[in-house]
Amino acid sequence: MINTTSQRAPGAVKAPGTERHFDRKGLVQMTLLGLLLILPVVAYFLGHLYYVNLASRITIIAMAAVGLNLAIGYGGMVSFGHAAYFGLGGYVAGISAYHAFDFTPFMSWPISVPGSDNLLVIWLAAALLCALLALVIGAISLRTTGVYFIMITLAFAQMIYYFANSWPTYGGEDGLPIYIRNTLPLLDTGNALTYFLICFIGLILAMALTSRLMKSRFGAALTMARLNDVRLATSGISPYPIRLVAFVISAAITGLAGALYADLNGFVSPTVLSWHFSGELMVIVILGGVGRLYGPLAGAVLFVMMETLLGGITQYWQLFLGLVLLGVVLFAQHGVMGLLAGRERNE
């Protein structure tokens, strides 16, 4: 599926005479995805579980960034509050498992809602709740533009962060443990490789959805709304609902990633709701290359690997992380994917 989708740049009309360029880009993308799939499988059969879990972490962070990229890169909506959706998704997994474990209902009035440890239920709930939250936040925030939009999305995320920190029922700042990984019928989700493959499929689906969306009429309208919303409005389409829908889908993808992350760690805490995490997600998207289908993946691989490798070398690792990020932004104009695969035609 990815083979066909990756051949075309999202939201752009195929231009003639760029075949060589395509080959290089396709090669880079296939290598990236291939390595991400093959290395953990090899590691698993060599008995190195740690690397399998590291790959799961990269995959999930990449998926969250894919969601954010839909808002930032394709929609031009610079959200500084996507941690809210990532965290909400995580808390859906945590809270649901907590009640399933305790055999207490999540809600008994007006309707009875029991907890569940079925991942399908959790994912559905996470995606729907994040979509709902994003609908409310987006409806208000999209009235603003530019820096105001950045800051109002941050404000909403901060509200949720402080709420989660001080609300004692689900652990407050201590967070909420998930004792046993939530389950799927027929599969052993506790197995590291199985769980990695679930995450990997999630990432592929998120990327495929983005790609399909951007090739549709909806995607064309979204691109137009980003580039020139006056022109879009004169063609009889109001940019506001287009943006809102994209924002909601973006939040749902990030929320799903949050649910996967909580189950990977067996734990969810307000840290993933903090503005730092929103900033990191943004950094990953920009690092990889804004508005590129494979950008979030490249960014996540680079960021998590740097975090892991530098951390083992020196206690001042964040200094070097900062220097590398600065180097990328100064010398690689269009992120890592821009550096490796060349420029997009619409840049």
């Binding site: 740690y50 690397y51 590291l54 760690n265 067996g266 840290t271 951390g311 690792w317």
Partner: peptide, 21 residues
């Protein structure tokens, strides 16, 4: 010795590293 930077998710990942690797 590893630095967790006061982040639960990073600490969890480092714990995996110590146990599994």
């Amino acid at each position: 010795i590893q630095d967790d930077a006061n982040r639960p998710d990073l600490a969890r990942s480092l714990a995996n590293e110590f146990m599994q690797r």
